[in-house]
Structures are given as C-alpha cells and as structure tokens.
Amino acid sequence: MGEIAFAAVAGWLIALSVHDLRYRRLPNLLTLPGAVVILVVAALTGHGLEALLGALALTGIYAVVHLGAAGALGAGDVKLAVGVGGLTGAFGMQAWALCAIGASLLTGLWGGVRVLRGVRTPVPHGPAMCLTAAAAVVMALTDPTLR
C-alpha cells in the first residue's frame, strides 16, 4: 500500500471515528463512498475477490446483529462494515478476523470500563471498527506471514 493510499485510508478512518464519537452516528456520506473506493482499488490491485468476500462476510454478521438488536448496533455500523470488511479482507483472512473479533472485544472492554465508572450511556462501535481495521492493515503490511 502506497503512502498516499495509506494516508487516505487513515484519514477516512479518523474522520469516521471522530464523527461517531461526536454525533453517535456514521453518515452515509462517509461510509458508502469509502466502501466503494476500497472495493474498486482492491479489484484494480488484484485483491477484489478477497475484499468483496470480506465486505460481504462482515456486513452479513453485522446485519444479523443489527436486525436482532438494533439498539446494540446501528445501521451506520452495518454500512461501515462494507468498507472495513473489504479493506481488511483485501489483506487476508487473518487481518479480517483480527478486525472482526477485535472491534467487538474493544467496544465491549470500553463499555465495561464505562459501566464500572458508573457511566451508562451507549458506546459507539465505529471507532473500534476503525482502530482495529487500521491495526490489522498495519500488522499485515509489516508481517508478510499474516497475508
């Protein structure tokens, strides 16, 4: 991944995280174009199938959770799963799994700490999705055995 692409992805993930932390929602204006760009670039670089499978798998899992417990996971998280799943899927199954599992664990840990501190407001899930996606990509780029 080139420096410009890395900076663009990092900027996208940061913008999503900041917006979700501030407004407790992930807007279509950020989630959907980012997902399209990721899937197109993955296809152009020979990783289209992996990205598509990653996007479909993560979005499917998130859609099931959203439909079963809409208050626990918002529609914006489901839409973000397309881009994040595609991004991490393009870097291999291990990167995808790290993001998929890590995001839920990170949000759960954050929520648990807040409960212990007496804070009962919901925790946005988007920042954990973005942080673990970034970590998974960095790990895949620095350790070729993860691809």
Rank of each mutant, 00 (worst) to 15 (best):
M1S: 11
M1N: 09
M1H: 15
G2N: 15
G2D: 15
I4K: 08
F6I: 03
A8F: 00
A8R: 00
G11H: 10
G11S: 10
L13R: 10
S17K: 09
R22C: 11
R22E: 02
R25I: 07
R25C: 02
L26F: 03
P27M: 13
L29W: 10
P33H: 09
A35Q: 06
V36M: 09
I38K: 01
L39P: 02
V40H: 01
V41K: 03
V41R: 03
A42R: 07
H47C: 10
L49I: 08
L49C: 03
A51N: 05
L53P: 06
G54H: 02
G54T: 05
G54K: 10
A55C: 05
L56R: 08
L58D: 03
T59A: 09
I61Y: 04
Y62N: 12
A63N: 08
L67N: 09
G68F: 06
G68D: 05
D77L: 04
V82E: 00
G83I: 12
L87S: 05
F91P: 01
G92Q: 11
G92M: 05
G92K: 01
W96H: 06
I101N: 00
S104M: 12
S104Q: 05
L106T: 07
W110H: 07
W110I: 13
G112L: 02
V113F: 12
V115H: 07
L116M: 15
V119W: 07
T121Q: 15
T121I: 12
V123I: 14
G126L: 02
C130N: 10
A133Q: 02
A135L: 15
A135Y: 00
V137T: 02
M139Q: 04
A140Y: 09
L141F: 02
L141S: 09
T142G: 08
D143C: 13
T145S: 15
